[in-house]
Design a protein around this nucleic acid. Structure first.
Lengths: 226, 226
DNA sequence: GTTTAATAGATTGCGTACAATTTTTTAAGA
DNA sequence: TCTTAAAAAATTGTACGCAATCTATTAAAC
């Protein structure tokens, strides 16, 4: 979130904030002060304001009138709704990717798996979380339906947020090879297997959450800039 | 779109513009000049600008850098993607509504059907189109999943836009009783029938579009304020 | 008459300033 | 010491103004 030399468009600002949320650098509930962001990005508040309305529409940020913008703290019910939506949509994504992915698309998937492996190897936990989300965004992009792609581009960052709030602290970042298995099934055009693996993967993530317990209350200031 | 006395929030401005699009008062491709809108709504351009970025994120408006905002002209491919998405999502909506709708919810549905009938009786074509879209938004709201509700709140106005672009001119507004039949099946907790009727309804709408022909090119200035 | 260039006009992009509101700090009272 | 009240500081909401850009008009050249 450092100041940059080139002028940033509001979408880019929103994207940078989204990345920070996905990497758990901006924890749920934290206040996003406009002036601070303006300073950090080297633009005026006007642009920050537009980026924040964008993120609010996206659902990643909550706007309290006269009180400011806060990174969303999804409720347990929202978390359940989110996974229900993903269970509905992602099998369709898998179907479409199998039906229309070309070699280049498959190559991109492999390249992404490589990045994930690398992040795991170097123990870069933040990057692992973000890349795990972005794997599903990439799949959605390859499915060739702009509406579903856009939906997943909203649901994945929110999923990262939910993990930040409800994940058991000792849980390992993400199952090592579930993404690879899905890609493998896609390559083999094994629709049934790919869907089964996808649903298993989603249920796996959701099951490790503690949605019945109270969400983590306060912000971990110590590790915020760790 | 007349000037109002109370101060409008940007969401309200966006909603008013959305309604105008749904009623085909703002046709696809028309330019939305910031100053004009600011005058019409009695606010400064700053707020209009935020409303437009919101609508652009929603997909109802296209933003051309330095050239302004235009009501979107969805391509045939986007139209097909939209209906594919609706065919995926709306059966799930029907399932959820059947599972969890209370009497009050059913009453709201009947109330809406009444409004539609009234609009049909008075021949208010604009209102019919908007209400037809809003029926699906209401169903989505009753399904109890915030993400699906939000998705449908974007897809329905876009559907109106697609109808404006690709509908055969002589087509009657909307099949008279398909909405009522869906509500009836929901009331009877007949999931299979409700889903079948919903899919039939969607296919009916899509089939009446001329997605293979070139979209209507220019704006009907004569009927714009009719 | 058509094309090209130059000018004038309109519109968008964005920073800034100020009012309205909230939050924090300080002080007084119980 | 804990409440409550008042003042100060910080932050948001919004309009305004100017620079940058695009569009339309006019004039010139061919």
């Amino acid at each position: 979130m450092e100041a940059s030399t080139t002028k940033l468009a509001i979408e880019q600002i929103a994207e940078r904030i989204t990345d920070a949320v996905m990497e758990h650098r901006l924890p749920p509930g934290i206040k996003l002060v406009e002036e601070k962001l303006a300073g950090a990005f080297g633009v005026s508040r006007t642009k920050i304001r537009q980026a924040l309305t964008l993120l609010a529409k996206e659902g990643l940020v909550t706007l309290h009138p006269n009180r400011g913008a806060f990174v969303k703290r999804p409720s347990a019910e929202e978390a359940r709704d989110l996974f229900a939506t993903r269970r509905l949509v992602e099998p369709e994504i898998v179907r479409n990717v199998i039906a229309r992915a070309c070699e280049q698309d498959i190559a991109r998937l492999h390249q992404h798996l490589e990045e994930e492996a690398q992040a795991r190897a170097t123990g870069d936990r933040r990057r692992i979380i973000r890349l795990s989300g972005q794997f599903h965004m990439l799949l959605a992009a390859l499915a060739g339906n702009a509406f579903i792609e856009k939906l997943m581009a909203e649901l994945c960052p929110l999923t990262c947020l939910i993990i930040a709030l409800y994940d058991a602290p000792q849980t390992p970042a993400c199952p090592e090879d579930e993404h690879s298995q899905i890609v493998e099934a896609i390559e083999n055009h094994d629709e049934a297997a790919a869907i089964r693996l996808m649903l298993h993967h989603l249920e796996h993530i959701e099951s490790e959450l503690m949605l019945d317990a109270a969400p983590k209350l306060d912000i971990h200031w110590e590790t915020l800039y760790g």
